[in-house]
Design a binder for these strands. Structure first.
Lengths: 120, 120
DNA sequence: TTTCGTTATTTCTACAAAGATATAACGACC
DNA sequence: GGTCGTTATATCTTTGTAGAAATAACGAAA
């Protein structure tokens, strides 16, 4: 039932990254969740990317991927204006965020339960 | 509760790769399980790697990583001999295989249950 | 002693992914 | 009309990873 005694580094861990994918291309995962959270906070793709230490290009690619796969965009953007423009998480975006957060919570619970089995 | 109606490609999927890790370095996962299965079958790292379309180098690195992290090696090898040498999965190796197989089964059950929630 | 297929290891090459850079367009505000 | 910070996009460069290739060592069997 246990396995940790077989290895030198006692603190064995279970890790997994949960992703929602469609037709090979990823739709949602932990990185995209964090990106949306930061866009919500800053109102800007640029600022959100900087906060995460991510290039604008990568952030934009993620958003483009999500939006093109979604019926309605998860994020809307506008260029120009007094602050130069900005980005907003739509209702649909919020819905996906909430769903994934719940999913991840249940997933973490599973991993923690199984982690107990690893040790003794 | 559902989310699939928000996306164009109806067949949404949940995907995750479960790994046992220790001190940052991976210890066991689906690729290593498959490798051990093939070594069991062929008695050779070389043949196992070929069966999987994997380079010998990569296979050897996986084995080296597992063995150095384990108290006792999961795989033993010998060079030379009538057939040139070979590799054998040890009792400890089998124990890890069995554990991971059970773990993965429970994991798949979790994913399938959650996948139902994605649709309708 | 030669042959053979394997393990074990290093080095080189190629390619893909990531990042940096550059540039255009936009529109509210002054 | 000029300024500003942003979105949007193309292109170039760098870097990291994977794989290919080469080589040595090994030991049973012929």
């Amino acid at each position: 039932m246990s396995i940790s005694h077989l290895f030198k580094n006692a603190p064995l861990q279970l890790k997994a990254i949960l992703r929602i994918v469609g037709e090979e291309e990823p739709i949602f995962g932990p990185g995209r969740l964090q990106l949306l959270e930061n866009i919500e906070k800053t109102g800007s793709i640029n600022q959100a990317a900087k906060n995460m230490g991510m290039s604008y290009k990568k952030a934009w690619q993620m958003i483009s991927s999500m939006n093109t796969q979604a019926e309605k965009p998860l994020i809307t953007t506008q260029t120009g204006g007094n602050s130069g423009g900005g980005a907003v998480v739509t209702d649909e975006g919020h819905e996906v965020m909430r769903y994934y957060q719940g999913l991840q919570k249940r997933f973490q619970a599973f991993l923690e339960e199984e982690s107990k089995n690893l040790h003794v």
